[in-house]
């Protein structure tokens, strides 16, 4: 579904990403973990087209999308949420999702009832009872769920989630995990950035570990957890 090849990003003299390659197969739930500042969000920005890589390619299916603007990539089936919340603060919760469903209707032609789809999606992420609220009245954790619902409203085949679980209660986080598993079962692919290691280990089939702009380990949750390099760089500190 998604292939990132040898991506390098420089901010001035700093190399934010140094030759990162990874793959998200069709229907897979892949985790991307690493300490703060490792370059996870930068990689998301490269994949979605908000950041231009100095070197490297991004492919969706067989198609090289490296030179496409963000909205063209979205129309090819790429959706995402943001670590720093990017909701439409002048709109209601429902309108936030509706706007995405309507956009889907305008370029996808397969969204007959945007308003109903938006309501259903909000119900699905557990925000059914606040859909008439103005979005700026919601706490941060719930705003992340608004972003998830909004991303789903574009009906993406590949979903990039940037820390969707932060700010959620244990109960909400468990529900989120179940939702992710459901989404993948429906045939979507997901690349998940998350600090909640428990959640990542529970739902992901494969995990990449990013540190200082490089992938230092790749494997199943078990393999990654046992990897001494990963423990030193990241997990070890959180386990201690």
């Amino acid at each position: 579904m998604l292939r990132v090849e040898d991506v390098e990003v420089r901010f001035g003299g700093v190399q934010a990403l140094k030759g990162v390659s990874l793959e998200v197969p069709d229907g897979a739930l892949v985790g991307l973990i690493g300490p703060n500042g490792a370059g996870k969000t930068t990689l998301f920005n490269v994949i979605t087209g908000l950041e231009k890589p100095f070197r490297g390619r991004v492919l969706m299916g067989d198609q090289d999308v490296t030179s496409l603007p963000p909205h063209q990539r979205a129309r090819r089936g790429l959706g995402r949420t943001f670590q720093r919340i990017e909701v439409f603060s002048s709109l209601t919760v429902h309108e936030n999702v509706l706007a995405a469903a309507e956009a889907r209707r305008s370029w996808g032609r397969d969204e007959p009832e945007p308003a109903r789809s938006a309501s259903e999606l909000l119900e699905r992420v557990g925000l059914g009872d606040v859909e008439r609220e103005r979005v700026d009245k919601l706490p941060t954790g719930l705003l992340r769920l608004v972003e998830v619902a909004r991303a789903l409203a574009s009906r993406p085949r590949l979903l990039l989630l940037d820390e969707p679980g932060s700010g959620l209660s244990t109960h909400e986080s468990e529900a989120l995990g179940d939702l992710l598993v459901d989404l993948v079962r429906d045939g979507r692919s997901i690349l998940l950035v998350e600090h909640d290691v428990e959640l990542v280990m529970r739902v992901c089939q494969q995990i990449h570990v990013l540190d200082f702009g490089s992938i230092i380990a790749t494997g199943t949750p078990d393999q990654v957890q046992r990897d001494p390099v990963v423990q030193a760089a990241y997990l070890g500190t959180s386990a201690a």
């Binding site: 979205a74 370029w107 996808g108």
Partner: peptide, 9 residues
């Protein structure tokens, strides 16, 4: 949010 708008196509 121009960025979020673009990522929904």
């Amino acid at each position: 949010s121009p960025a979020a708008s673009a990522t929904m196509g």
